[in-house]
Design a protein around this nucleic acid. Structure first.
Length: 597
RNA sequence: GCGCCCGUAGCUCAGUUGGAUAGAGCACCGGCCUUCUAAGCCGGUUGUCGCAGGUUCGACUCCUGCCGGGCGCGCCA
């Protein structure tokens, strides 16, 4: 039996075959091939049709022209040049010039052995090579609860993080707290006005304030903490404030209110409300994420970025290198020179820095902290922002490709075939919390992850919470639970699983269903690697469904608990392998793997 | 107007640097429980891959132009 525990051996069969193929091609230079082919062009792929074997490659087709030979002829030469190995049991030239490979049976047994040896570590790879990745996701504004769109970003980001770790990257997950700038002041003044109302003042709430109900408990909590000590007459709050929209300018109105609050309470007093409100909102966000199984290594405050001087350092560097200029009293970054559509303001006419200045500084800071790769998960509505941040990084001397942005498309909720309208302004949007309460964490995460992130998501509430066979969530979980059930049955018959015997007789697993299951299991490390590199968690969901499918088919076709102990233990080793891989995969997705359904 | 995403079976969607006969779930029809959980399995039906050109041995995939849907284009964040 071949054991894949030698350091040079990859757990990924695909990589093993590609290694052999590269050796073969290298040996054909220069007799057949003029020069060494681009390694990236040398690949084997799983066949779609089992009749074509386990893996296939199209290198002969790709290289035929440079070799000046017919594809099938070149394929023959490549075939003959493949070094002796214990992996390939058969190879054939097919079609226009494909080379099909059939794996030796013992590779299946070796895969099974690995699963049992490695357990929850099975599937981990090394392509990441310890590359330091800073994965930023969600970063929801602390001005309100998270909505279903944030939920998708949370599920996507958390799973992508798990995939990257599994693929050998060194990942830090970070949540950027947008707690500076005008919006946080609007939050504070909104809370303060509700506080005044709760204290007995009567006032007209500004149209531009946060009017939604979630502000009320924050105001009540503030009052519980400070009593009437912050109460001021509403007439003073509204003194000299221009009329509110539609008659006046809603921006000027609320800015005047913020100014008045600051004057009446003192800068420190207003700061206290800002901090109080922010912390309350953040606590709720953190609580939501915890409940959803999403955690971060660090919560990075925009305010800290300012107070630490990081923003000024970045701006000064841009100034030193003549990347900014003055116009109309503001300071502009030459974004056009770095691929953006237009130049962008970094310091406003009023002397305040824009959020964009913070973002440049923040991303620059990530690089300064030693991260090779910066991955941002953003809502698709932020796509316009990518070019300018990348431009900022390049202007600061960082490579353009150090920043990678994964855009997550919008989510639409459907109930009884009707789309739910969600207006964020009216505060009637559906929160992540409400969604989780209604459909449960598992369905929530799986539904979020089933579709490609760049596909708009239609989330069917009725389907997600139906406890029926229409619901795809249960299909995978059911396979896991069924294995547990088999073991219980085994026990109740007074038998016990003999792992060593099962693995020793894995060669007896030669039925079509058994080979289908083994093939599916052996694909797992490849799927994890692909999903991580393609930033495509949905690929793992689809794989788990296929694995579950091969298991359910096997389950219906064969009895596992049979008289023949060797065969019984081999089959049990196989289905336990399925259970382990499903558990590992669901773990990456953040979905529970129940023992019973 | 400009930029990004999407357009594949009745519906919701996969389709791995371009590859072999374009797949899955749901829905629909017909079978399978005295045997480890029927939330399962087996079989059947379903396509101008939005349209038109181009590149190539080969295009759902790449390029160009249209059509349709979504999102974004502030000294807001």
């Amino acid at each position: 039996m071949v054991r894949f525990d030698h350091p040079s051996r990859s757990p990924i069969l695909k990589a093993e075959l590609e290694h052999l193929l590269r050796q073969a091609l290298a040996s054909l230079v220069p007799s057949v091939l003029p020069d060494a082919p681009d390694p990236a062009s040398i690949a084997v792929e799983r066949t779609r049709d089992p009749a074509h074997g386990d893996f296939a490659t199209n290198v002969a087709l790709r290289l035929a022209k440079t070799a000046g030979r017919k594809p099938r002829e070149l394929a023959q030469a490549i075939l003959e040049a493949i070094p002796p190995n214990e992996l390939i049991a058969g190879a054939a030239i097919a079609g226009a010039g494909f080379i099909n490979f059939r794996l030796a049976k013992h590779t299946f047994a070796a895969t099974l052995q690995r699963i049992h040896d490695e357990g929850e570590r099975f599937g981990r790879g090394r392509v990441g090579a310890g590359t330091k990745v800073l994965l930023e996701f969600v970063s929801a504004n602390p001005t309100g609860p998270m909505h279903v769109g944030h939920g998708r970003q949370a599920a996507y980001g958390a799973t992508l993080g798990n995939l990257l770790v599994a693929a050998g990257f060194d990942v830090q997950r970070e949540f950027y707290i947008n707690d500076a700038g005008r919006q946080i002041d609007i939050l504070a003044v909104s809370v303060y006005l509700r506080y005044l109302e709760a204290s007995g003042e009567t006032l007209t709430f500004p149209v531009n304030g946060y009017r939604a109900a979630y502000i009320l408990p924050v105001a009540a909590a503030l009052r519980a903490e400070v009593g009437d000590s912050l109460r001021r007459a509403s007439a003073e709050m509204y003194a000299d404030a221009p009329p509110d929209a539609p008659a006046g300018d809603k921006d000027k109105h609320i800015d005047a209110l913020i100014g008045n609050a600051r004057r009446l309470l003192g800068a420190a007093g207003f700061e206290r409300i800002v901090t109080f409100a922010r912390d309350r909102m953040l606590a709720e966000i953190r609580d939501d994420l915890d409940g959803f199984g999403v955690s971060f290594d660090r919560w990075y405050s925009e305010r800290e970025l300012e107070t630490s001087g990081a923003i000024d350092r970045a701006l000064n560097k841009l100034r030193d290198e003549n990347r900014v200029y003055e116009k109309d009293g503001a300071e502009w970054f030459r974004a056009v020179e770095f691929g953006d559509d237009e130049d962008r303001v970094v310091v406003r006419e009023n002397g305040l820095k824009t959020y964009f200045a913070s973002d440049i500084a923040y991303h620059y800071d990530k690089r300064q902290r030693g991260f090779d790769k910066l991955i941002d998960v953003l809502g698709a509505d932020h796509h316009g922002y990518v070019a300018r941040v990348r431009g900022g990084l390049v202007a600061l001397g960082e490579p353009a490709d150090c920043l990678e942005v994964c855009l997550v498309q919008l989510v639409s909720l459907f109930r009884n075939g009707e789309k739910l309208s969600m207006g964020k302004r009216e505060g009637n949007f559906v929160t992540l919390r409400q969604l989780r309460d209604e459909v449960g964490n598992d369905a929530c995460r799986l539904f979020y992850l089933m579709r490609s992130n760049d596909q708009h998501l239609d989330f069917d509430l009725e389907l997600a919470k139906s406890r029926s066979n229409e619901n795809p969530v249960y299909y995978i979980q059911y396979a896991h639970a069924r294995v547990a059930s088999v073991l219980k049955q085994l026990e109740s018959r007074g038998l016990r699983f003999d792992r060593a015997q099962g693995l020793a007789h894995a060669a007896r697993l030669t039925g079509v269903h058994e080979e289908a299951v083994l093939t599916a299991l052996s694909r797992y490390p490849e799927v994890v690697e692909h999903a991580a590199l393609a930033r495509a968690p949905h690929a793992l969901v689809h794989y788990l469904r296929e694995l579950a499918n091969s298991f359910h088919t096997y389950y219906n076709a064969e009895q596992f608990i049979v008289e023949d102990a060797e065969l019984r233990n081999a089959r049990l080793a196989l289905v336990l392998g399925v259970q382990q891989v499903i558990r590992n995969g669901l773990g990456i997705l953040g979905v529970a793997a129940p023992e019973t359904m």
